[in-house]
């Protein structure tokens, strides 16, 4: 069974008088341990698809299943619980809760998961160490660079032991060197910890790191290729 399965996803938005079809019948299957990049130009539907895979947005029609579990018809709170148990996120920016330190940001999700205090601090420190921020646990967002903030978000996503990490343009606000370092870290974590990563990005650095590249165009899958 595939980890992620979508069938014929359709999503339209209204922009004033104009109806935009962001997704137009997307069927996709992602297996365990994959490192997938959804690529495409701006407006191709990659972020919309990623939001649906993360139970943040609902399609007009079609289905999404994670580990065989359908969440389209769940309530808002039930979808929050679904995300908490199965999905980790790394966003383009504003990834951190600003009043919390790096360690507290990681521990926040663990607290939501019901992890005891001593264990969540140990796990937070472990994952911060994994992303190369072992000595920056007490720093808040304004004491961290953009790349460091993204690494904290990666540590937070992985500390929760999700089935999938979804990353939306994670390198968009980083210089190419920092973006490459972040991608190297995520790729390493994919290989060592076997966590599935799905990216939405048009950054060549991200596309270059993909093991599988799915190109979207006008809300459809234009190509789907295994790279390496």
């Amino acid at each position: 069974m595939a980890l992620i399965e979508t069938e014929n996803l359709v999503k339209t938005y209204r922009l004033g008088d104009i109806t935009v079809r962001a997704l137009n019948g997307v069927t996709l299957s992602v297996g365990n341990e994959e490192f997938v990049v959804l690529a495409g130009r701006s407006g191709s539907g990659k972020t919309t698809l990623l939001n649906m895979l993360g139970a943040l947005d609902m399609p007009d029609s079609g289905t999404v299943r994670i580990k065989g579990e359908e969440f389209i018809n769940l309530s808002k709170d039930a979808r929050a619980l679904f995300r908490l148990r199965h999905i980790g996120f790394v966003f383009q920016a504003y990834n951190l809760i600003r009043v919390l330190s790096a360690r507290e940001n990681v521990a926040y999700v663990l607290e939501l998961q019901g992890v005891p205090k001593s264990e969540r601090h140990r796990r937070a420190d472990h994952w911060l160490n994994e992303v190369g921020l072992g000595d920056m646990g007490d720093r808040r967002h304004d004491q961290l660079s953009g790349g460091q903030q993204q690494r904290v978000a990666v540590a937070r996503a992985l500390a929760a032991e999700p089935d999938i990490v979804l990353a939306d343009e994670p390198t968009a606000n980083l210089d190419s060197g920092t973006g490459q370092q972040l991608l190297d870290t995520m790729r390493h974590l994919n290989e060592v910890h076997k966590t599935t990563f799905v990216f939405a990005s048009h950054d060549p650095v991200v596309i270059g790191a993909a093991k599988r590249l799915v190109r979207l165009d006008d809300g459809r899958i234009a190509s789907d290729e295994i790279k390496r």
Binding site: G54, L56, K76, D77, A80, L81, R83, L84, R85, F89, F91, Y94, N95, I97, R98, Y108, V109, L112, Q113, R156, A160
Partner: peptide
Amino acid sequence: VREFGLMEALGSRRRN
């Protein structure tokens, strides 16, 4: 608002 959106994305429920 963005932070509340982020918290919700991370799995916070409405009651949180």
